[in-house]
Design a protein around this nucleic acid. Structure first.
Lengths: 203, 203, 203, 203
DNA sequence: ATTTAAGCGAGACGGTACGTCTGGTCTTTAT
DNA sequence: ATAAAGACCAGACGTACCGTCTCGCTTAAAT
């Protein structure tokens, strides 16, 4: 999707000649997609089903999105609250722990399962992966990075560690577990993972 | 796949006259699958294409495997060396660093991309995910756990940290990066990640 | 359709390895097509509708026919009696008159309307036109030519006129009227047309 | 198309309030249609393509014509010379022969192919067929009927034969051949057909 | 001069058929 | 008995075209 024709940009689009894009149709498509994605997996949701539930023609979907995955991504992005809760308790470790607990709750929600399916989709659709990274993942990481920055400034977190490394140390394990389920994900694990990430595993 | 009909069991199947052909067919299927998976993504490789390249009927594939993903998993498992290199340099940190560098090399090989696609496939096929975990991931983790155990015994690694937490701290970030590509994967990053995992991020 | 894979040739096809073509499916397709063509025009009948009414997958239709027009042609050819009634009353003029009356009855039946639609279809599908000509029209003409030949032999019809010219003189006007409806088609007209064709329009 | 809104009637239309019909647009549409119909078949020419080549909106087309076939018919009617050449050599037979040769030349021109496509179109669009008959075919026949009338008056052609029968005897065979291509169309055939029509096929 | 009723270009839209493709099953013949 | 060949069903895919519609601009007659 080229950003200038990004369906989400409609709000600030200048009035063009010709029939204007039917915003209700766009909304209906995103809602239908979201509903269906709560019932079935991304792969099971068909473009036809989205069109039908939205009361919209299939052609209208393909007019604005190149494939159903990107419809799903737009639906997801427009439905989740855009801001991550970035707690500011005064303690970086508490902040990260709270944050991770929130992420873990997210992971076991329908949205979390969708998040996993997006990563999955990205493995065989490079274009989708880029969009997912740029339009969702990166902004999330940037917000969390602020939390990390506060810790650095307060002297709680080492300044000599790259922020990406630090973030991955905290969030990588959780995502890994979300995707493979090899170990549990709960509040207790959140605390254990943050503890380990903060203190390290060496004696 | 029921274990008793696991194609890998063919090896220890009683040597009967009529079964010889079957083994060739199975071998051909696994080879064809592996070849195709080096050319295309798992989703793009079709059961039909595997059958054709293997010179085998599609029915023969479906006789022994419930779906093409599990053919791919079997192909993958039979083609990679089953043992992880678990260095034993006398220093846990060096061991982990070497190990992680090897993993990163693996990740950028065709096999690594396949590994990512398996995790992807697991997101909408619970059965496949379980098999992937049980037949590949778990054994890998168990082998690395030995390395971790050595570190604990030598007093280099804290004994009060759950091994799964420790392993995820080291490997989670890498897998996360493999799947989303949000940050680079190379030897330098391997060292940074291990350093951070060992010392922790707190000051 | 290549003649060797002509669905109608199934009878004399040598036994091939593998599952044999499901003749019931073929029959069901032709019947469904014929039924639908009695309800709607060729253009309105869809491949999907044929598949559905035949209880058959769309892929099965496209496996054996390149498009729905040729399904319709096969259906038509298999449903109409393959022999034209070629009366032999002893008088060529009576023979032609009877024959033309039969053609006119045919023209106002559903089959006649289908015949017209086949000629129509042929105007933008050269391949279809050739098949229609070779598999239907030509054989009809050849049968009528026998009637013409009898007249020639009995000395009733001029031997110096090309048979195609003679046949077109009798049948051309009727087909023209079938297609454009500019003049009526009935028994009386049949007699007038044969009379004119036999005696000519000059004084 | 209702005659009062017939695009060809614009000249004598009473001045209506509001912006007047853009005659350039109408012309452009007809020209574009004609151009496209010389490149592709009627079925292949799309309303969208006509609009685009005419530099006109699709809505403008549908404002004045109910469908693209009737655009094509109007384009055809406005582009061919409206008068048939009706030779008057003094001999009815020569007149008809010349006339038929002209028709045969017409048949193998792009216009002739279009003529065939109009008849084809008429087979599944009764309304179109009526317009084609009334606005083209009938007037042509009426003009040729004059030629026939001259022959009757001169005593060359039998007065007891219905003019429609006579005309169909001469032109039916040619149209039949145009549509199915079962026999050739050339000057020699024109002579043979007229000869047969004049003298009849009986001995 | 202002109103007002078209005409028009742009282009979104619902509807619907197309012909292709794949997954997975089933049947027949040959080995 | 088992495998190869391959027909089959179900149904999604993404594309195409139809004819309708809405919007904002333009034009010209009527007020």
């Amino acid at each position: 999707m080229i950003s200038s024709s990004n369906p989400l940009d409609c709000v600030d689009a200048p009035k063009r000649r010709g029939r204007q894009r039917c915003l209700e149709a766009k909304e209906a498509i995103l809602s239908a997609a979201m509903e269906l994605l709560e019932e079935k997996s991304l792969r099971e949701v068909t473009a036809e089903a989205i069109a039908q539930r939205a009361g919209v023609s299939k052609a209208t979907i393909y007019k604005w999105w190149p494939n159903k995955s990107l419809v799903a991504l737009d639906a997801f992005l427009s439905r989740i609250q855009s801001n991550v809760a970035t707690p500011n308790t005064g303690s970086a470790r508490t902040d990260f722990t709270e944050q991770l607990k929130a992420l873990i709750r997210f992971c076991s929600s329908p949205s979390g399962r969708l998040y996993a399916q997006f990563i999955a989709e990205g493995q065989c659709d490079r274009d989708f992966l880029v969009q997912f990274r740029d339009r969702f993942l990166q902004s999330r990481r940037d917000e969390v990075r602020i939390m990390w920055q506060r810790g650095v400034e307060r002297g709680e977190i080492r300044a000599d560690i790259d922020s990406d490394v630090a973030l991955d140390l905290v969030y990588g394990p959780t995502i890994f577990r979300l995707l493979t389920g090899h170990s549990p994900l709960n509040d207790q694990q959140a605390e254990a993972l943050v503890a380990a990430a903060f203190s390290g595993i060496k004696t």
